[in-house]
Amino acid sequence: MIFTAVTTIIGFMVAIQFQTTKEPIVRDTRSVMELRQELTVEKERQQELMEQLTKNEEMLEQLQDTSNVETVIEDAIDDLKRSAGLTEASGEGILIEIVPYFDQHYQGGAIRSVPSHLVRMLINELNIYGAKDIAVGSQRIVSTTPIREVQGVTLINSRRITTFPLQVRVLADDPEQLHHYMMTSEVKEYLQYENLEFSSTPMKDLTVPAYDQSMRVRYMTPVKEDS
């Protein structure tokens, strides 16, 4: 009888322990705001995916409809080349000029180039505010463009960027807005601390050069269908 009571207690405890360790209660502690934000992010992603899907479906339709597949594929390749930055691009945009600025109290050495971290910051801000294509000096910025500092000189695409004024050409859909954004941007202030003056002018017609080096693709391989 006693054994029965004891085993009952043990069974009870084991069952409780089992339940406790099996499914720990994970409480959802997100607030309504956070949930809304997440929902918005997911919706945006859905939108993006839908857009991609439509684009690909359109291309598939074109491929199926036209007897001449080559032109469609060539168009697609040209499109890809354009978005990768391998072709010259022109259109509306803004021209940013960066020049050294010395006041009478200036102490310090000569300014040889715009510091690399500021170039990076500038490009980031341009991208945030809707730049489509960017060229710094004569160097087109592509997705793999390295911006480094070697012995006090900034290198973009492994080319020295030492000429002043440094011209940054940016293509955008709405150059006026981008211009206003850039004139109030954080990078402008930071450039001032480095004795560099920053000016931006919206332009009707602007051309950015093509990326002139060969692209090194390291982490992608072509997919071959088994047929």
Binding site: F3, T4, A5, T7, G11, F18
Partner: peptide, 26 residues
């Protein structure tokens, strides 16, 4: 066989009540 029946009854009782111990006391 009584102890085994007791064990089973205990387990069933524990599972059916659905009591959970806070993580700190496991």
């Amino acid at each position: 066989w009584l102890p085994f029946i007791g064990l089973l009854v205990g387990i069933l009782l524990g599972l059916s009540t659905g009591i959970r111990v806070p993580d700190a006391y496991t």
